[in-house]
Write a protein that binds this DNA or RNA. Sequence first.
RNA 1: UCCCCUGUAGCUCAGCUGGCAGAGCAAGUGGCUGUUAACCACUGGGUCCGUGGUUCGAAUCCGCGCGGGGGAGCCA
Length: 461
Amino acid sequence: MTSVRELIGSRADGRRVVIKAWVRTKRETKNATFLEINDGSCFSNLQCVFDGDAGAGIATAMEKATTGASVAVGGTLVESPAAGQPVELKADSLEVIGVAPVDSYPLQKKAHSLEFLRGIAHLRPRTNTFGAIARMRNQMAFAVHSFFQERGFNYVHTPIITASDCEGAGEMFQATTLDLDALAKNGGPVDYSKDFFGKKSYLSVSGQLNVETYCMALGKVYTFGPTFRAENSNTTRHLAEFWMIEPEIAFAELPDNMALAEEFVKYLLSWALDRCREDIEFFDKRVQPGLIAMLESVRSSRFAHMTYTDAVKELVAHEEIFEFKPYWGCDLQTEHERYLSETIVKGPVIVTDYPKEIKAFYMRLNDDGKTVRAMDVLVPIIGEIIGGSEREYRYDVLLARIRELGLDEKAYWWYLDLRRFGTAPHAGFGLGFERLMRYVTGIENIRDVIPFPRAVKQAEF
RNA sequence: UCCCCUGUAGCUCAGCUGGCAGAGCAAGUGGCUGUUAACCACUGGGUCCGUGGUUCGAAUCCGCGCGGGGGAGCCA
C-alpha cells in the first residue's frame, strides 16, 4: 500500500497511484480544489489537486470529503507548481470511504487546545501534534532498545503483578479477584488466603529488585515496561500508569552508572534530533521554541558532577530566593533542582552522595556512614529525569539497613540471597519514559505524551 | 493531600461597581483566488456547568456539588 511518506519522498515521475488516507483540510477555488490528506506515515500531508470541472461524480464525493473523512484518491504524482510542497497528486478519482459529518465530528479545520483534545483521546491522534507525539514515542522506544542491544544488554521482562509489598517506591494498586461488593456487605476481616495468589498482591511500582536478580546472572540487563503508582498526585509530571526503563550492570560502581546514564541520555537526544527531524521541527516551531537548540547543546555538553553536600552549599549561598530554605539533610525541592541545572551549571548535572535518610534502603552506604551512593540526573526545565544508585552488595550492611529502617527482613529473603551467593558490586538507574517524552517534545503535560493517560480520577478510554 | 485559578456558541475567549448575550476561529451560502494557519461579504448557531440563595432584576454576588487547569508534596 502506498503511503504519503513514500510519495513525498519520491520523484514526481508521473506514475499513477491510489492512496488511502484521512482528509485534513479542503480548499476550494473556482478552477481547482485542494484536498490535503494524511495517513499518519509522516507529519506532512499530501496535497491532492482536483480540476474545478472534474465532473459530477467527483463533485458529489467532494461534498462528503470533509475534515476527518477517510478517502481513496487516485491520480498521478507530479511536481508541484506552487511553493509549499515538492510534489502533489494530480487527482482524477475520489472515493469517500467513511464520512465525518461536520456537525458532529469534534475536530475542526483549526487549532485546538491540548486540554480539549485530552477529552477526546480516541480522536486526538488524528491531529498534527498527537500524530507527531505518537511517531516520536515509537522512535524513542526503539532508541531505548537499540542503545542497550548495541551494548550487549539483555532485555528482561520483570513481572507486572507482584506479591511482595517491599518494592518501596510508592503507593501500590492492589490486584485482587476477591468479590469486594460481597465482602463489603458481609463486613469483617478479609481472608487473603482465598485471594488468587493466596496472599495480597499488587501491581508493580518498579522492576528493579527483580531485575537485580538477572543482573547477578547475565551481567548487563534492562527492563522497559509499565509501572503503576497509586499516589494521589495531580501534576504535569506524574501518572498512575507509566513506562519505565531500568538498566542494571554488574561489577559496576557509581561512576560507571553515571557514565552510562550520560551516554544514554545523549544517545536518546541524538536519535530524536537525527531520526525524528520533521516531527521535532514541528515541536520546535509550535510547542517549545528553541527546543532543538537546547537538545543539541545538551547532546554536545559534558554533564557536570556535584555531590549533594556541594550542591547544598551552593543553594545555601542563595537561600534567599527559595521558598524552602535548603539545609544539609533536606530533600532537594523542585526549585532547588532547577536552580542547580538552570542557573548554577546551565546544563545537565548529576548530583551524587545523598544523605541515607532521604534515599532507599538498597543504596550502597558510603564510608562516612552518612551518605549513600545515589545519583540524580537533573536537566534544565524538566528537573530530575533519572534517579539511580550503586546498590549495597555487602550482606551485613544491607541487612543492618533493613533492620535500621524497621523493614520486614523476611520479605527480602530472595533479595538478600543475591548478597549471600556470589555477590558483586552493581548499579543501575530508572528513567521515566514519559518524562523523556516531555523532554524531547517540549510538551509540558505528561498526560499528552502517553496515548491513554491514567491518573487520579482519570481512566476514560 | 494542600494552595491558587477556571467553567459563557462546535473551539478559544471577552462580558467592568448586578440592568436586552458578544468577538475571533470553525460551519453554511455567495464572491475571489494554484490554494496551502487562504482571503472578502453575509447567515445560522446559547440549559451562560448544576443546584440553592440574595435582589425589582444574576452570566455577573454568596453557599453547596460536579468538571477542567496550574503550583506544591510524593516521585520517574
